[in-house]
Design a protein around this nucleic acid. Sequence first.
DNA 1: TTGTAAGCGTTATCAC
DNA 2: GTGATAACGCTTACAA
Lengths: 354, 354
Amino acid sequence: MPHKSDPPTSDAAARVPNRRVNPNGPVTADDVAEIAGVSRWTVTRAFKMNASVSEKTRAKVMKAAEQLGYVPDLLASSLASERSNLVAVLVDDFNNPHKLVMLERLTAVMRRAGIDTLLVNTLGTEDAPTALLNASQRRVDAAVLIGVNFDDTILHTALGARRVKKLILFARASGNADTISICVDDVVAMRSITDYVISRGYRRPLFLAGPNTGSAHVFRKETFVALWQERFGTAPEVADVGSYDPTRAYQVVTETLRSRPRPTLPDVIVAENDAMAIGAMDAVRHELGLSVPGDIAITGFDDVPLAGTPIYDLTTYRQPMTEMAEALVQVVQNQRGDLALQAFTGQLIPRSSA
Amino acid sequence: MPHKSDPPTSDAAARVPNRRVNPNGPVTADDVAEIAGVSRWTVTRAFKMNASVSEKTRAKVMKAAEQLGYVPDLLASSLASERSNLVAVLVDDFNNPHKLVMLERLTAVMRRAGIDTLLVNTLGTEDAPTALLNASQRRVDAAVLIGVNFDDTILHTALGARRVKKLILFARASGNADTISICVDDVVAMRSITDYVISRGYRRPLFLAGPNTGSAHVFRKETFVALWQERFGTAPEVADVGSYDPTRAYQVVTETLRSRPRPTLPDVIVAENDAMAIGAMDAVRHELGLSVPGDIAITGFDDVPLAGTPIYDLTTYRQPMTEMAEALVQVVQNQRGDLALQAFTGQLIPRSSA
DNA sequence: TTGTAAGCGTTATCAC
DNA sequence: GTGATAACGCTTACAA
């Protein structure tokens, strides 16, 4: 046993297991074990919820731990076990303020569940697979995509034999059957928006569509068009903005409507999300000199903070973020792994813009 | 040597080091080493930048790694070494859209430097110490505070003997000498805003102040008041909003100015940040029915995306986020650890609001 | 330049 | 309910 031969160290105590050489170093479970007079494993158990430890022993351990300032090392724990309690959240679009709302809910709910968040900026669409690989190197329990331009087919290919255990689309439906998706039911949501718009008497809608991504798609445009067609027999006008950028929406609305005779203007703009709705409203007021909703009404989707301000007061649709985040936690913790798609129902928030 | 006695496994090969028992498990450096015909340590070296490996050996290793789909395990690496290349970013205020800009810059710059971001939602001010402790359990190389309500004195106390190696305040000055702070020089910034306001002929300012936090303070109000006093011999009017909330700013501006005779109204509102400036502008237009800048001009601070839109077109001050993020990386990587305070200079962005 | 042996601080397994 | 021992996959120190 060559590795058991006499070490060159002068101090024999340095070789004795369960004895700290450097009393100033980080406190480990061994230190606590020694003080508490139990084994290291018992210390570990005391820090777990469902472990079989007698209350007496646990109290003894906790006292020693507090005394020493011991807290379990999550890194060592992750290495030794199958779970890291770490989830990567990949974001590729930091322009939409709704991302901040999502991040807030996600981090709050996950932290309460003992899950930490690795925030990964994909630095542009092309980089997403690399970002995912990077996250996998930290052994995340799951990777959550809350961006818009991800193509989960590409991601799956890129992942290949990698060890990202779960790939979850958040607030976005997936065309890919083996990708878990947690989102609102776009059909239900658009139906309630469409019903509202119709009930308010609007008859010349302009639908403002966002980016047309591959599989991580929202089905809002398709749904609205289908419902309108079904109801009135005519297809509604659609303008493609191409991205969820309010500035682009501003430009597209301006270009689309600027030189039109008044009677041919839409009476309502139905935007795929609030960011575009806000850009559209700015354009209607600022560039076209028209009033909202007097001349043109507007609806959005997401209920970003700005939508609730008196300036915009936007009629929109709110997704149940907390519920969705809680579902995500359950999926990560394997309490709901069977469901590939989880569709939630949000609520219409009627305000004065439409 | 009891632990070296015959194992119950039927296959003797399972006991031989450097040989995989389960060929389907995760690929380790040992696997690559075997294929490449080198030692595990050489494989590790090949994946480091400044390691002393011959190009030939490295090529051999990389080929084997690619073939096996090997990537280094950052968790194991962190456990074994002193560096985790992981930085915790603590946020306690997800309402300010500027946070999204900061997060974008921070994550982008850090990721390019090989540093991953742990996003920690402090769930309210009281929870900050717990959040920090939580981050320390992941052995982060540094904790960055980009919130506004942190009191780094409390944090320091709470930290005590914990192993958060560095505590860094980002975009916020510190009153605490042993806390590193990376931010713009508020005095320089406010001087350029004040000079601009004065040069445009405004003489009846209203300063809109944010929360008055303990040590993680901004010195914008103090600076503006001092400069104005110095220049005109009179103290400018100040209204305390108490938080960086546009809705609060909206209310405060409305209440403060609503019933005032026109000649006593301010001719310019200098807000401590864009969020408040935007709320103020909405109030001036919507509640007071006045025009900007015709009746009342407005300036902000941060240059959030919304500030650049035609509706607000806000005169503001832009912080050099990328530079600041790069400085942060250098601090984290110990290339600048000597500096306690790093003050950057941003630039005034003149627009039509003032 | 490359290899060997001993950790890093947990968890897993299986005894007692 | 509790304890001993071997992983987990890498880095450090030192030897070759």
